[in-house]
Amino acid sequence: MREVCVIGGSRYFGRHLIDLLLAAGDRVTVVNRGSAPAPPGTDHVRADRDDAAALAGALGDRAFDAVIDQVCYTPAQAAVAARVFTGRAARYVMTSTMEVYAPPTSSALPPTTPGSPLREDAVDPAAWPVTGDLGDDPATRYAEGKRQAEAVLAAAALPTAFVRSAHVLGGGAQDFTGRLAHYTARIAAGEEVLVHPRPQPTVFVGHREIAEVLRWAAGADFTGPVNACSHGEWDAAALSGHIAARLGARPPRLRTARDGETPSPYSFDTYYAMDNSRAATLGFPFSRTSDWLDAAIDDAARA
């Protein structure tokens, strides 16, 4: 029986992750502030993950085969994790994001070429500077926070893997982002879908598949970043057209967003789709987005 700690993330695909761990026979400890109950069958530790002394005290003498950190957003949080779990955990898995590659969020990122999916070495955690300055723009703050968090953990004496998740789809009402529901609702109602002048492709992963990736990563022995996305690139126009066909609706009314208007989620003006071949080489077989997209659309339409 493995001892696995999950920090935060007990809703949406985090709940699927915990269910998978329990089904595999792992003993699961969930760490959160107590604002949400831990799922049945888990050990619940209430603590502020931003406070190293409080977190260490709440954990007591617990030690873990693996820690899966669902809510590490800043280098300060990563530093707390490194301090508390070095020597206490044999392995650390940080849930990261494809936004680390997002060109608009840092001038230090390499240029992207449509049709050439990004590999993990496009952003090397060991070489990324940790400044503590994350910027003021929310998108930049999120992406830079993840990049610098990865960098802090990469420098720690704690074997760490970074799962860079694609945009997660599926789950219906569980999907608190509402992004896929934005499309299903507007297309079903015949309303306009705002997009960039030339929407660029992106990649997705299903809400159950990303949970499977995280469970797999917790039991593997690789370190460093790994891209997590289903096969197949989709742009906002193709996604809208597929949704309309699935709903039996009229073709989507796409309109280029004017100055001051915000394009729909998953519409991007720059390309930064990911290459998932490292994960495949290490042993995780991804599905194709087309394998599960219709079920995700159905769930969003019913939510």
Results as ranks from 00 to 15, higher is better:
V28T: 05
S106F: 02
V93I: 05
V30K: 08
A245Y: 00
P117L: 00
Y142L: 02
M274R: 10
T177Q: 01
V163C: 06
L214T: 04
T262P: 11
Y272A: 11
A300H: 01
D133A: 06
A157N: 03
F176G: 10
D51Y: 09
P111D: 01
A81C: 02
E209R: 15
F284S: 05
D137T: 01
G14S: 13
V130D: 03
I18G: 14
G206I: 04
P265G: 04
A181Y: 09
T113M: 10
A63R: 12
V4D: 06
L17K: 12
G132E: 02
G9S: 06
L194E: 10
R302G: 07
R186H: 06
L293V: 00
T223R: 05
S240Q: 13
I243A: 15
D133M: 01
R215D: 03
G170V: 01
D269F: 09
A54C: 01
N227S: 13
C229N: 13
A300D: 04
P40T: 01
R250F: 11
D19L: 14
Y12P: 06
L59C: 07
V31Q: 05
A245C: 03
T289E: 00
I210T: 13
A149N: 04
T262Y: 12
T112W: 14
L109A: 05
H207R: 11
L194T: 13
V80M: 13
A139I: 09
G57E: 05
R11M: 13
R2V: 09
T131L: 00
P252G: 06
P75L: 00
A149L: 07
R253T: 08
A249V: 09
D51L: 10
D299H: 04
W234F: 14
R302C: 07
P129A: 00
A257V: 14
A188Q: 00
L134E: 01
S267E: 08
L109P: 09
P104Y: 07
G115Y: 11
L254E: 06
L169G: 08
V6S: 09
R164L: 03
I18P: 14
G132H: 02
L282S: 08
T160V: 05
A52P: 06
P40G: 03
A139C: 10
A188S: 02
A303M: 02
A249M: 06
I187W: 01
A52Y: 10
P251M: 04
S107E: 15
M94K: 08
P117D: 01
A66M: 01
L109Y: 02
D19C: 12
F204T: 14
V193H: 04
D259C: 10
H242F: 11
S96R: 07
T256R: 14
S35E: 15
P75R: 05
T140A: 03
R27S: 05
D221W: 12
V163P: 05
A58C: 03
P197G: 02
E192K: 09
G283H: 09
A280R: 15
A181H: 08
I7C: 11
L17D: 10
Y101N: 13
T177D: 05
A189D: 12
P265N: 02
V45L: 04
V45D: 00
R46Q: 10
R302N: 04
G57W: 09
E144W: 05
A52L: 03
T223H: 01
A189W: 14
D50M: 11
E209S: 12
A279S: 15
